[in-house]
Design a protein around this nucleic acid. Structure first.
Lengths: 335, 335
DNA sequence: CCGCATTTTTGGAACGTTCCAAACGTGGAC
DNA sequence: GTCCACGTTTGGAACGTTCCAAAAATGCGG
């Protein structure tokens, strides 16, 4: 017995059959308490470790969930991934986390690899491009899949999609800035034509239209750097702008640092609101107002949904929007 | 054949035996080119997908590597995890990423779970506490394991350990500040008594001793918040401090934002150096000087080492230090 | 103490690969 | 034409679980 012990060894030690051991492993209710204890004891005695590959092979269910993320370096996704992973761990599932770096090719390779590993489900914040390939592969495999934050297929309903209510976020942020007295509000960042950008922007546009303000829109990357650059551009091209809604917090934080650099008083000369409410928002100077998506809650909900799909076959609703809430801080601050 | 096709189906379709198909799957050199092509074609035709659980069961090697990280929300680790994961993907391995949130109990549970899944190796930046339990479990399983950034077992050599040369980093940073003319340099952050803190600090202490400067040490958390708080404390208790070495970039960025807030001119009144060189350093204001650990390279090396241990049985050296380099930016800037 | 319902336990057959020793086929040397 | 070596291919036996139908044990009313 130089090998690792198997359930057979456990069975022998405990004086029962392997089937009984298996039942114990599966927490079956139909095994008598006393034998359960005996079996557990035997396991501890001989140092048994469960072999999930064998179980997976036989039962075709792996206890593995693939989390495929387009940009893990973005703190927003990192925070989500962390919460999600810990939530799943609580439920006995392990998370295989993969970053696709916005590369659709890498994405479909990754997905194929995860399918080979027999993941029981996917949660995916997809990279754009090659939509058909990606979706087809998953569909062929028949693995429960939840799209989060972004949807590859806006129209068709192949996979349920859950995201924060971006539009409402845009609305809140814009209304807030108006209330603070802004006369001219710009929207910064976000790739043009992407659904997420359009949604966040549409909340902004609606509110402006209602208040008969002309929009100022500068779409682009979603990085700190871009935020910094746009401050100069605004100063040059749109000196009357006194409020900005940023596509996300990274852009917002970039704006903040550029303002500090060029002596613009954030919260007075220029009011800034970000999006996502990552943790950095609280520690920047000035602290960044932001549309909070309640990341940990969102992760919890997502985890619950994919689990109940896997375990109980309950497919989540196709389009879901989670609540958002504006976290007001100094960057949009003094009246 | 409502089921997924297996190698048997492929074999039938291609007119060969299942063994041959298996050989093709394993890229064996001993299969003739023409049959290889035929088999591949057959696979494509019937939509075969490889079942790794079966392979794992038989060959007891899963192509899965566990990456266990103590704090994924810290951008430094997120950057590392991302690079590492993508590097492994290149080599056909999938990464199971788990965050332990500095919780040793969660850590040992996580590790056990990953062992059940049959991970072929671990790369672990451990949470402190319960050292013996954690190490014993891994050791019993006999899984190749590389400790990175931190070591649970300083003394014994149960698992190889690789980390940036923290001490050298501390030395470089301190010398740099001296060269810039600082008369009094403080060290901020890092939990007291932890090896990493001591190493970073010892480089600092050595240099100060050589220049007969008295150290000012304020250990504590490794967060932005702590950095902010310490600026006030320094101003109150140590008004003569004109340079700070921060335990890591988070502390450094916190210092920066507090300085901006209270009107301290960073780079002139106070020179600041961080540690890790996360991406945010380049986009803060002012840009934060930092000791770079070359994260992507480090990840690459780590990946290579764990892979060659797994594939070729080459156990890496027990204690390794990777190069560090000071990235000089505006925060330590003007002479 | 028997019969019957119910609770527990059980042996054998999967699951889809890889491994191994042996068989096959082909071509060159004699 | 025979033999051997070498490059390919092959069937059967694992690997460690879960599933299933059926057997064994138990409890209970009469």
């Amino acid at each position: 017995m130089g090998q690792r012990p198997t359930i057979l060894d456990v069975a022998k030690k405990a004086g029962v059959s392997k089937s009984t051991v298996s039942l114990v492993l599966q927490q079956s209710a139909s095994v008598k308490e006393s034998t359960r204890v005996a079996v557990r004891q035997a396991m501890a005695d001989i140092g048994y470790v469960y072999n999930r590959s064998a179980a997976t092979l036989r039962s075709s269910s792996s206890g593995l969930i693939g989390l495929v993320i387009n940009d893990l370096r973005n703190p927003f996704f990192a925070e989500f991934a962390t919460s999600f992973q810990m939530e799943l761990a609580q439920n006995g599932f392990a998370t295989v986390l993969a970053n696709t770096d916005e590369d659709p090719l890498l994405q479909s390779r990754t997905i194929s690899s995860l399918i080979e590993h027999g993941v029981s489900g996917f949660v995916i914040s997809p990279a754009y491009g090659q939509e058909e390939d990606t979706l087809a592969v998953i569909e062929a495999a028949g693995v429960p899949t939840l799209q989060v934050f972004r949807a590859l297929s806006q129209d068709d309903d192949r996979f349920p999609f859950v995201a924060p209510d971006y539009k409402l976020g845009g609305t809140c942020a814009t209304e807030h800035l108006l209330e603070m007295g802004c006369k001219r509000i710009a929207f910064l960042g976000g790739l043009n034509g992407r659904a997420v950008t359009q949604e966040r922007m549409s909340g902004y546009l609606d509110v402006l239209a209602r208040h008969r303000q002309e929009p100022v829109i500068l779409t682009g990357e979603v990085t700190r750097r871009f935020g910094k650059q746009m401050v100069a551009k605004l100063a040059a091209d749109h000196p009357d702008v006194d409020g900005v809604i940023c596509f996300n917090d990274l852009v917002g934080l970039g704006v903040l640092s550029a303002c500090v650099e060029s002596g613009i008083q954030v919260g007075r000369d220029l009011r800034v609101v970000g999006f996502d409410d990552i943790q950095d928002c609280q520690d920047s100077f000035p602290a960044l107002s932001s549309v909070s998506c309640h990341i940990p809650d969102f992760a919890k909900t997502t985890a619950a949904q994919i689990l109940s799909w896997i375990n109980d076959g309950v497919r989540p609703n196709d389009h879901q929007r989670s609540e958002v809430e504006l976290a007001i801080r100094a960057s949009s601050g003094q009246p």
